[in-house]
Amino acid sequence: MKAYSLFKKDWQSELRTRYAINSLAMFILVTISVILFSIGSEKITGYLTGGLLWVVIFFSAMSGLSRAFVSEEERGTTMTLHLIASTTTIFSGKLIFNLLLVFLMNFVITFLFFILFESFIIKNFLLFTFAFLLGNIGIAVSSTIIAAIISKASSKGTLYPVLSFPILLPLILTLLELTKFAMDGNSINDSIVEILVLICYDVIMLTASYLLFDFIWKE
């Protein structure tokens, strides 16, 4: 309940300041436009559009998800949070906020890919939905803990993609594989190894984040 109250505060603050939403919306719009202009009238394969989808998602996450902690640090309100909430509450509240942002962002990106790229055809929609849900959770958890780490650093902008790349790489590679399987129409049984990898990634990241956050947050 306390975490939900923190999320509510963050969401209302976001609606008033538009720190993350604006940068995410602009990034999605610009990136997809650039891809469309560069492709022109060329035909691209389904696998390539699947790859492009996760590239856009990865870089969009880089552009907006660090705001959860960075905005607190920049406005000097980190100490206020220290004084009103426990570390578990803070991490949970920020995670809920990033989960919502990731789901909204990825839903918009995927929807745009469906309507703008002819070759983006998913034959096994259930498998894609599984990958989408588990992938979003993984991106949100990883982005939240990385945002907490970089909020304490001086060169936040550079550090975020640098730290995110090795942490998100196994997730993105698995998601690429699952998207390919979903495009080929493979069954869930055929893709069970990749789905289990995703579940393990999410569980490990979530557990490690809760264990580490106390050390990251407290100076």
Binding site: L6, K9, Q12, S13, R16, R75, M79, T80
Partner: peptide, 27 residues
């Protein structure tokens, strides 16, 4: 209870909204 010049409240909310949020987050 802590007061310091380096402590900042949320600029985008009213004074009362800040206090309501803080109470809710405190549970």
């Amino acid at each position: 209870g802590f007061v310091a010049p380096y402590l900042y409240l949320y600029d985008e909310f009213t004074a009362e909204e800040n206090l309501i949020h803080f109470s809710n987050i405190r549970g």
